[in-house]
Simulated assay, not measured.
Amino acid sequence: MKTIQLRRYTLVDGEYDAFLSWWQGSMPRVRPEAGFAIEFAYGLRETNEFVWAVSAPGDQDAFLALEATYMESDARAAVFAGVPQRVAEYNVRFVDDFA
Rank of each mutant, 00 (worst) to 15 (best):
M1I: 10
M1G: 14
K2F: 09
K2L: 07
K2Q: 12
K2V: 13
T3L: 05
I4P: 00
I4W: 00
L6M: 13
R7W: 05
R7A: 08
R7K: 03
L11N: 00
L11C: 10
L11R: 04
L11W: 02
V12R: 11
V12G: 05
Y16D: 09
A18R: 11
F19W: 10
L20M: 08
W22Q: 03
W22T: 04
W22D: 05
W22I: 06
W23E: 07
W23C: 03
Q24R: 15
G25C: 02
G25T: 07
S26H: 08
M27K: 09
P28E: 13
R29K: 11
R29N: 14
V30E: 13
R31G: 00
P32G: 10
E33G: 06
E33D: 15
G35T: 09
G35N: 10
F36S: 03
A37I: 03
I38C: 03
I38N: 07
E39I: 08
Y42F: 09
G43N: 09
G43H: 05
G43M: 01
L44K: 04
R45H: 04
E46Y: 00
T47M: 00
N48R: 03
N48V: 02
N48A: 08
F50G: 00
V51A: 02
V51C: 02
W52D: 12
A53I: 05
A53M: 12
V54G: 00
S55I: 01
S55L: 01
G58Y: 05
D59A: 13
Q60K: 14
D61Y: 04
A62N: 06
F63P: 00
F63A: 03
L66M: 11
E67T: 06
T69M: 06
T69R: 15
Y70T: 02
Y70K: 08
M71D: 14
E72I: 00
S73T: 12
S73K: 07
D74K: 13
A75N: 11
R76T: 10
A77K: 15
A78H: 08
A78F: 07
A81I: 03
A81Y: 09
G82Q: 14
V83E: 11
P84T: 12
Q85Y: 03
A88I: 00
N91K: 12
N91P: 00
R93N: 10
R93C: 04
F94Y: 13
F94V: 06
F94W: 07
F94Q: 08
F94E: 06
V95I: 14
D96M: 07
D97G: 01
F98T: 14
